[in-house]
């Protein structure tokens, strides 16, 4: 399955909560109608900084070399899933899902994703493919979960294969045993070009400034782990009750 993430920065005319409504509401109503889409999630940056939800001590213990101003480069990211790359590229064509006078008809607005990109975002999304490693398949109850994402950068001297193996190996095995965990997926960004035939050729993302902005963002991290818990308390408890094994592995990775 092809998994594509698109990180976006909101248009400065919108507050963060207005951006939420615009992205989750109008925009996603078109996104979910993309042709042959097989999964669609939108992750919006929480209004609560992790230091408030997890506590200063734990955040300091789990964080190393966090890039300055990282969170100011994005407000959310969408996750698109398709069976094939061809399906992904063909997704932005009119969808035949609109009931008209003559039966089911084409809706060109689907291909344009509502045509609100310029008003919703500041620039083109940073869109890329990821290889995912499902350590614990996600199981969702009927309530809002606490979702935490751990970004990681590969040490320059560590080969890519080893970096992936360390993260998805013993570390993931241990992490997946955390009590209360409802899902754990580790994603590695790949260099596959998923932007050229998806966005318009004159999009900001293809200008020299847009390319530089994206490359700067990519230079800060190589992989990200998604954790789902019932609550932040569950995560804190899991990481503080039996801290040594995971923490030791994190220290070894430096």
């Amino acid at each position: 399955m092809l998994k594509v993430l698109g990180f976006v920065k909101r248009n400065s005319k919108l507050s963060h909560d207005e951006y939420r409504a615009g992205h989750v509401g109008y925009h996603n109503s078109f996104g979910r109608r993309l042709n042959h889409i097989r999964g669609y999630l939108l992750n919006v940056a929480s209004n609560t900084p992790v230091i408030n939800s997890l506590g200063k001590d734990l955040v300091h213990r789990l964080t190393r070399n966090e890039p300055e101003d990282f969170d100011n480069q994005w407000d959310g990211w969408g996750q698109l899933m398709f069976d094939t790359f061809e399906d992904y590229l063909a997704a932005r064509s009119p969808a035949r899902d609109f009931p008209g006078e003559l039966g089911l008809q084409m809706d060109p607005m689907v291909g344009k994703l509502g045509d609100d990109l310029d008003e919703l975002y500041a620039g083109t999304p940073f869109q890329f493919q990821v290889d995912e490693f499902i350590s614990r398949p996600v199981v969702r109850p009927e309530r809002k979960l606490f979702k935490l994402v751990q970004f990681g950068q590969r040490p320059v001297e560590l080969p890519v294969e080893l970096f992936r193996a360390y993260w998805t190996g013993r570390y993931a095995s241990l992490a997946s045993t955390m009590p209360g965990l409802r899902g754990l997926i580790i994603n590695f960004r790949t260099p596959l070009d998923v932007m050229s035939k998806f966005f318009a050729a004159d999009a900001e993302g293809f200008t020299p400034a847009g390319i530089e902005r994206r490359q700067d963002f990519y230079s800060l991290w190589d992989g990200m782990a998604e954790y789902w818990f019932d609550s932040e308390e569950n995560f804190v408890r899991a990481r503080t009750s039996k801290p040594p094994p995971l923490y030791t592995l994190e220290q070894e990775a430096v």
Partner: peptide, 8 residues
């Protein structure tokens, strides 16, 4: 929920 030139 619709982002426009005039905001939401």
């Amino acid at each position: 929920t619709r982002a426009t030139a005039e905001g939401l």
